[in-house]
């Protein structure tokens, strides 16, 4: 979000198949594409900084998030999947490591079902995208900002790093516009009923990273993903909630890097 304190890596504007995209990148090594969630956008977080110690991290703002303008044609997660496939092809990457957080986990999983041979290693961090029967995701559209943050975080230590300034009208409007993009992607249903069957197409090694106790997305979502992706395993980060990449950036990044390192 534009509100947040200066990030140490500034965004540059690039084009992906003619679509303007705000991108932050740092590091050296194999390309790692980080797909952000519905919040904590437009930021170079401590988590990304950690990842960049061992990979060339590409962290674009999705269409309609952060500094990447919205597009009328983007109405579903499938549009973002093809958007990132365009990015991969234009960069000439044979394969990429994909790390998706929350909504970004859904996008990463869907990407890996469409282009399984293009994914080196797949990491889904507290992903959404599936329906856990009887356990819906908490309705973020029906929450005050205070309640949203209280639900996202189990450890409030790092909230000030990412909390938007509610007195800044520009920030409040920007969040409303980002949530409008979220509504366009997943207002109803808030999962992809076709995804469970398609996940069997994934061929890359996959790691699912869960929180110790996620009060936004049911903890069973991670297990459900793991049961549907061949060979996937689940790791959980102690002491965290849904916002684990903000709560425990080093530990979460270490899990990711160790997993990626197994392939190198």
């Amino acid at each position: 979000m534009t509100s947040v304190a200066q990030s140490s890596v500034q965004a540059e504007m690039i084009e992906v198949a003619g679509t303007p995209v705000a991108l932050r990148r740092r590091g050296a090594g194999a390309p790692l594409l980080f797909l952000h969630g519905a919040g904590f956008t437009g930021l170079w977080t401590a988590f990304l900084e950690e990842l960049s110690s061992a990979a060339e991290v590409w962290a674009p703002d999705h269409i309609g998030f952060g500094a990447t303008p919205a597009q009328d044609w983007m109405t579903g997660v499938d549009d973002l999947v093809l958007h990132y496939e365009d990015l991969r092809r234009e960069q000439g990457w044979e394969r990429i490591d994909l790390v998706g957080y929350s909504l970004g986990g859904w996008i990463a999983a869907a990407y890996a079902t469409v282009s399984p041979e293009r994914v080196g290693r797949l990491v889904l961090i507290t992903p959404v995208g599936l329906r856990v029967p009887g356990k819906p995701i908490a309705d973020v559209m029906m929450m005050t900002p205070q309640r949203l943050y209280a639900t996202l975080f189990n450890d409030p230590t790092n909230i000030p790093q990412v909390a938007p300034d509610p007195s800044d009208l520009g920030v409040v409007v920007h969040i409303y516009e980002e949530m409008t993009t979220v509504a366009r992607l997943l207002w109803n249903p808030r999962h992809d009923p076709k995804l469970p069957r398609r996940l069997r197409r994934i061929t890359s090694p996959a790691l699912i990273v869960g929180a110790e106790d996620d009060r936004l997305v049911p903890n069973e979502m991670c297990d459900l993903y793991a049961s549907l992706i061949g060979g996937a395993r689940v790791e959980r980060v102690p002491g965290t909630g849904h916002a684990l990449i903000i709560e425990q950036p080093e530990r979460t990044a270490r899990l990711v890097l160790d997993f990626l390192g197994e392939g190198r």
């Binding site: 559209m141 029906m142 005050t144 009208l169 920007h174 516009e177 949530m179 409008t180 979220v182 509504a183």
Partner: peptide
Amino acid sequence: VPPYQWFPPGYVSGRSFRGMLE
């Protein structure tokens, strides 16, 4: 009615939302 029920995302444009808040 709480505000988040009155104005679900996209119910008004960002421009209208800004105008209302102002």
